[in-house]
Write a protein that binds this DNA or RNA. Structure first.
Lengths: 220, 220
DNA sequence: AAATTTATTGATGCATTCATTAATCCATAA
DNA sequence: TTATGGATTAATGAATGCATCAATAAATTT
């Protein structure tokens, strides 16, 4: 059991949170600043930043530091195409591999999503959305697939968050998302691999459209 | 330009080399030992080890350290299935996206492979084999796809190396590999996405068979 | 005045030191 | 003989200090 949280793990988690909510493309993340704000020394910050560079979330210049990369719509398409490839394949596998516990988890998340929508809780909705996709890919029961997917999903997610903030959307909490999630779940329960993977692919394409179907080109 | 190599980058590179040639599943990698042998302090070693844990190459126990995970044939199948998914998709994209420079690079590697086989140079052959697959995925011109692929390829490669060493193979340097690589290249030149991706998938399945088609179950 | 050189500043890169903790060994008692 | 408990050891976890380098500002030269 990995019970207590490391300083490095804490730093990793908090930095991701800051990236999602505080920083924007082009910003440099200063080690000393992060260390002071998180109440740790520079060492665990350095380690966490290097992990994020390896994750592709940050870029790094020697002796200059780590920064949020500038992203264009071509990047978004490339990233989402990999996510679609992995996540639709996960659905294909989940259709045959998912266990009762996986379905329970998926429907637990669906219920929480519904509740977040009812309470008009945007943060809660976003959290549930992420949880659903994680639960979906975990239901494929392939840890290598999950690892690869989780990385690209994190990067895709950052795009979405940046665009959300750029246009200050507190989206209408579209119940469309919930319906699509439920439809995916239904296909998996029916053990229909082709339908499940196609519904996931379509759902991810929607997410890409949500990101790129906007006036953008904000960066170089 | 990222010209000179970092202590951390050096550590990362040398640790991977040691994993491929020196350590075996179950072994713990001691930071002090690595630091002394590489002539650096513990700090860059710690960072490199954490990257390798994030890569999935190593596992980590709190206050115990990093070790080579024990792998079974189910792991190998799961890992290779992800590699097949990504690499065959890369071939599909490369069929339409590859530029003249990409074909030049691929054929340069093919020539080097032939030379390594002629000189009965096992190390050189292995190096060329890796280079071909890297060049292939790079020809897809999707950096996100390349990142995801490179990670899973590294892990698959480690399996192969471990089994090579476990059975002390200095394989006959099968020209079969070269022929398959050439056939893949040919399909890409013909801009035949379906044929290219199928040939890549078959080639990767062969690699999986090479790893799992052996008396094994050597570990828990 | 413009350009080039130099000094200052502030950041990362890395080594070192201290703290923490898990495993081992050994002595002692049941 | 076996189990238990404390001391020891050796490893990671984390903080600090120093070196290095890049960017900026200032000063000097052309």
């Amino acid at each position: 059991m990995t019970c207590r949280e490391n300083a490095e793990q804490k730093a990793y988690r908090l930095i991701i949170h800051d990236i999602k909510t505080k920083y924007q493309p082009g910003d440099f993340l200063l080690e000393r600043d992060l260390a002071e704000r998180f109440g740790v020394s520079r060492t665990p910050i350095t380690i966490a930043l290097n992990r994020l560079v390896a994750d592709g979330v940050l870029q790094k210049l020697p002796k200059k530091g780590c920064f949020i990369p500038n992203l264009n719509s071509e990047d978004a398409r490339d990233a989402f195409s990999v996510r679609i490839l992995l996540e639709s394949d996960a659905a294909r596998r989940a259709a045959s591999e998912a266990l009762p516990a996986d379905f329970s988890r998926l429907e637990e998340v669906l219920a929480a999503t519904e509740q977040a929508i009812d309470s008009d809780d945007f943060m809660g909705f976003t959290f549930c959305d992420e949880n659903f996709h994680h639960a979906l890919v975990m239901a494929a029961h392939n840890s290598y697939l999950y690892d690869a997917w989780a990385r690209i999903y994190l990067r895709c997610n950052l795009y979405t968050r940046f665009f959300d903030r750029m246009y200050t959307r507190k989206t209408p909490l579209k119940s469309g998302t919930l319906a699509e999630h439920a439809a995916i779940c239904e296909a998996l329960r029916a053990r229909d691999a082709a339908l499940g993977s196609e519904r996931v692919a379509a759902h991810c394409r929607d997410a890409l459209t949500y990101v790129t179907g906007l006036p953008q080109e904000a960066s170089a």
